[in-house]
Nucleic acid binder design. Sequence first.
DNA 1: CAGCATCCAGTCGGATACTG
DNA 2: CAGTATCCGACTGGATGCTG
Lengths: 120, 120
Amino acid sequence: MMTKPLVNSLPDCPVETTVLLLGSKWNILILRDLLQGPLRFTELQRSIGSISQKVLTSKLREMEERGIIHRQIFPEVPPRVEYSLTELGLTLKPIIDSMYQWGEWYKNQISYSTDPSFPR
Amino acid sequence: MMTKPLVNSLPDCPVETTVLLLGSKWNILILRDLLQGPLRFTELQRSIGSISQKVLTSKLREMEERGIIHRQIFPEVPPRVEYSLTELGLTLKPIIDSMYQWGEWYKNQISYSTDPSFPR
DNA sequence: CAGCATCCAGTCGGATACTG
DNA sequence: CAGTATCCGACTGGATGCTG
């Protein structure tokens, strides 16, 4: 299951390690979408919403190298490629979940506090 | 407690909202360190380890604007400034915790799998 | 469809010098 | 100590055109 590590020597701090492996905001959004199940390239691009083809490709390659996602090629015409999470990728679910929960809570706070009928 | 929102309209997706508010890797490391208690500017810079003064300043201002951290100035000579988490900042703890746990687990996996005596 | 190659603007972030 | 100001190189990421 485990492929090559991110760098030769990981940071001492576990949080820093995680941040390093997660990478950018794009990687997190890809992760979020693939947690719902496998997706094709174009589907992923659409579900993320605003990512360019070039960036999506490079982030997918990066995550594949790190053993987070799996790339399945179906030799058809037209070509079909499906991306899915590896076992390792799935282990990141709790992090995405905690982000989801916080984001939901935060958005509620915001909408309450900007609601004119918000109690004082 | 709640200050001005990050943007006028937050993304629909809670995960994306969280990612946006967290910002960069630097913000996360600042958060990690301030979860241990208030720190002065130089202490923070040292505990993060490799951040330049310019970046640290800008990230602190950004997080202050978003209501995540509090900046306390003590009118002394030499000047003293302490940074701490706000109530809102503290609510992010579960996210950092989940990152910590995952990172720790991951580092263990790596070290086992590269250990020559790793059982087959 | 799922890319790769190229160009190019904008941002990030380090280094350095200076200040209340 | 805790910054601000400036310069500048490196990286990020969008747009466009082409391909198996």
